[in-house]
Amino acid sequence: MTVFKKPHALTDAPFHYCPGCTHGIIHRLVAQAIDELGIEGKTVGVAPVGCSVMAYDYFSCDMTEAAHGRAPAVATGLKRANPENIVFTYQGDGDLASIGTAETVHAAARNENITVIFINNAIYGMTGGQMAPTSLVGQVTQTSPYGRDPALCGYPVKICEMLSELEGPEYLERVAVNSVKNVNAAYKAIKKAFQNQIEGRGFSLVEVLSACPTNWGKTPSESLKWIDSAMIPYYPLGVYKDRSAGIFGGKTGGACDRSESAEKCACSGKADCGGRPVNAGSSNGSDCGKNACGAK
């Protein structure tokens, strides 16, 4: 009989996260991967600025706290200093996709052998609900009180799609934690992102669509549904790049659809794909327009 218990890689410190926030789930998944891979003793984590700023108190491995957005640079320094360590960053959307975009892009371009856990909840949580680079069009926040207006502040940033255009990174996948099925898929992706580093494959980023009931002004269960109804259509789940598996999303547009190249798809044959394109890359215009977006 399997007894459900807290992973060893989490400390006993109680989380400070709001009710219904999914940071706790993602922390657990990261810790569980560290446990299962037996790497806690050599892992060093980098906490961001944002709601998970105090992640350094929650993980049992060595931890540092980076300046806002600089976690990939800090992780680069750690990894280059001690390549035998397993180094991961844990970053929110403001940290990774706004102030730290340069660090993110260039760590990916260098194929820095680190693991990046990217929490996308489409809002700035810690500062009280301001518009994030990933806030959806029309989304009401404290700093977009009339809804995000693309004419005023452009469109939400799709990190996986953007990075998939780069030659550098090894592995990019977008997952969500709003259902048991999705949580299980998220775990697999996170574990793979660590496994890649152990095997020296390079930059691995898992984007996790996450809920922020407090700042979304929704109940926890409404929030999980909103991920499905609003976020996933704009941020399709799937593998955007997996060099070792031959998946190069940005180059082939919607080519990683099950029907077209199932044998190359990382989750080929698995239910996770759910008929959705595994890769919704959109660089090849015409292809993707129908294939990726039409499949929702």
Binding site: A73, G77, R80
Partner: peptide, 25 residues
């Protein structure tokens, strides 16, 4: 390790990481 960072900002934060790892940087 010699690494040309993408910016001075990145470079000093790489220094922060390596200093955290205990090496002379």
């Amino acid at each position: 390790t010699f690494l040309q960072a993408e910016s001075e900002v990145a470079a000093i934060n790489m220094v922060y990481g390596a200093a955290s790892a205990g090496v002379r940087v």
